[in-house]
Design a protein around this nucleic acid. Structure first.
Lengths: 195, 195
DNA sequence: GGCAACCGTGACGTCACTGTCAGTACGCGC
DNA sequence: GCGCGTACTGACAGTGACGTCACGGTTGCC
């Protein structure tokens, strides 16, 4: 097998193994067994377990980062509502498309160790900044309620993370549209009719 | 030192050590060093690392479970709005009161291994059921928007988890009232003014 | 056929952490 | 001051996963 191909193959099976067992319970032996290669081969392509895990997470974050776009309130062609919905739709689609990786992001990568926690927080911080800025801009334009933009951003992200976490961990077969609709409804009108 | 006292002391320092280092990076030696006892002493009181960690998590879940109450839509003395707000307030208060434990719940206990994941999901399922039932009841009474109650419940819980996760992980000094208000606003009217 | 480049192998030494257990220290009743 | 119970100690052997490395097989070129 060619070099790049083998590397990709190991990466793919590692993703499955990590998703199935969790980071610590996944042994190098599990990965090489699943990939049908010898122990030594693994070390030809990756520094160690941590390195391959980081690569999986980094790739996932990169893919995710590419589908999150800034909301342009001036765009005459696309309403803000549509842009918000599209963002939600794209993020949900990417994460549901590859559930093994999503489980790794939302479960296995969490609380791994202080160094990895920092990595996660850096990514979430970038996402939060984007959301927060959009909210601030919207508040100035009067299309977003006044209130703590930072907190709104965190709550919105948390709602997204949790629904995807539940779907992936419980292996639910929730309709993608229902998820997107639910999120948009929550953001745009809440669910309580109380004051 | 008396038996119960020593046990509690080890439990307390273990909580700190787990919160600081994460489950796997926390070694028994770290715990006994922090508790200023010998290695053997630890094993007089706890089966192993897993057992003491589970006890910390179980206690936290029990405490949390005690502050979550059903919303009684018939209660003439307490409006639904007030009851919802009080629930949010109590949950936030309990989790911010002991940040080490909250970090353990929201970060270290996540993705530990499949067995522990199940334990977490069971607890969250109970909480979700309670929220979901309340939402359904509210929908029948017309005080909650129509829509997928299960999804609303998950989103609401996710928003709460995330804001507390961010506060604890980044050691933010966010105002407790701002958090409670933000959550209630999100639930009751969203933040977008769009359709 | 010989040789070189390449990819892959798996047995092996190492190491960090674990849980145990024979032994110490101390207090208390008699 | 002896005997006994209780709490604690820490050196030790066991374990399981890790990363290495000397070697084996295959392909293709001269």
């Amino acid at each position: 097998m060619e070099k790049g191909e083998r590397r990709q193959q190991i990466l793919n099976v590692a993703r499955e193994v990590f998703a199935k067992r969790g980071y610590h319970a996944a042994k190098i032996d599990d990965i090489v067994a699943a990939a049908k290669v010898a122990r030594g081969t693994f070390y030809l392509y990756f520094e160690d377990k941590r390195a391959i895990f980081e690569e999986i997470v980094d790739r996932a974050f990169t893919r995710l980062g590419m589908v999150i776009t800034r909301v342009d309130t001036q765009d005459p062609a696309r309403s803000v509502e549509e842009q918000v919905k599209d963002n939600i739709r794209r993020i949900v689609a990417v994460l549901l498309e590859d559930r093994a990786t999503t489980k790794i992001l939302l479960s296995d990568a969490v609380g791994l160790d202080p160094a990895f926690d920092r990595k996660l927080l850096v990514f979430y911080e970038e996402a939060l900044k984007l959301i927060e800025e959009s909210i601030r801009e919207g508040q100035e334009l009067g299309i977003v309620m006044p209130g703590n933009a930072r907190i709104y951003a965190v709550l919105a992200m948390g709602a997204m993370k949790e629904i995807l976490y539940q779907v992936v961990m419980r292996d639910l077969d929730l309709d993608e549209d229902a998820i997107v609709t639910g999120l948009y409804e929550l953001f745009s009108r809440g669910f309580l009719k109380l004051a």
